[in-house]
Design a protein around this nucleic acid. Structure first.
Lengths: 171, 171
DNA sequence: TATTGTTATACTCTATAACTATA
DNA sequence: TATAGTTATAGAGTATAACAATA
């Protein structure tokens, strides 16, 4: 989880510490905002027994039935070995299942189960609702602009670094 | 680190997977953007032998000489126990030091060392430069707007959830 | 030879709970 | 009793390298 500390010290006292040049840095603001947003989603999804990452995987599997693990890993920006315990867990919980492929016996195609679909159906409105909360104090125009600016930032990074190795920034 | 997978599968093939309702979600966009930004900073700071989190701590310590660990933990949004190994490491590397406090012998005041100041002095331009890259394709107005919108998002979350426990979202 | 999925392993980041030495 | 810092421990989350089965 992502809770925060003790109670002996007043938060105000801690906030009174000088943050120096940290304030206004894009990286810092993005991180703080990202963490705040993720906490709200995490908390709500937790009641359904899944994490944001598991939710994202369920979505992708549902939209791409029978995909191979390696492909799913790529799509999620993870190493193939990282996906193994993730799918183990979801399979144990009965939300996903591995099925052998007739043509290629190395492959384990991933399918969402009925139970997985139920959880997903319950989770989607929760995620949408969380997104509403996140966008709570933004107008529709501001929301579009925020998305647009973040997209620009990412494009800018890609261009400037034009990664020699093809490592995409999925998530 | 935050690298990404194998090479057997074309990135395009993976990108061709349907991401469903994930696209356009604030949480997802924030995460992807945050990760992209952090990777660029991480990579550059790595050459100086420090992580972004260590850099942030150095900044705060430098600006608040002799602060207690518990206070620093709060300021960084971490548990006091989390800060211990972090400071251990920085102390071992000779960038910070713990000094006893005359009045209260429980306290270990944290100070930046000369070496720490040197590393910090080298790191600050690196961080600023990374920030330039991040803001590369934004105009000054867009940059201000992005910061403003993220601030609004955080305020919105705080308001809507108006945390009963005082858990600030530092970082 | 190359690819798929798995294992074994390790490292980072974070927290909670219990402890110590003080206050 | 309460606080400052520490330890012991645990759990995510992630990766790399080596491996078996299969292509």
């Amino acid at each position: 989880m992502l809770t925060s500390g003790d109670s002996a010290i007043a938060d105000d006292e801690a906030r009174s510490l000088d943050q120096g040049m940290l304030l206004g840095l894009m990286g810092r603001e993005l991180r703080v905002t990202y963490l705040a947003v993720f906490r709200t989603i995490e908390e709500r999804l937790d009641r359904l027994g899944i994490t944001p990452q598991q939710f994202a995987l369920l979505v992708v599997v549902e939209r791409n039935p029978g995909a191979r693990q390696t492909l799913l890993a790529k799509a999620r920006g993870l190493d193939k070995s990282t996906l193994v315990p993730m799918i183990d867990r979801l399979e144990r919980d009965g939300l996903l299942e591995r099925r052998p492929l007739a043509n290629d016996r190395r492959v384990r195609a991933i399918w969402i189960t009925e139970r997985g679909n139920e959880v997903l159906a319950a989770a989607i409105p929760v995620v949408r609702e969380s997104d509403e909360i996140v966008r709570g104090s933004l107008t529709e125009a501001e929301r579009a602009q925020l998305l647009n600016l973040m997209e620009k930032v990412r494009t800018g990074i890609e261009d400037r670094l034009s990664s020699p190795r093809g490592s995409g920034a999925s998530a």
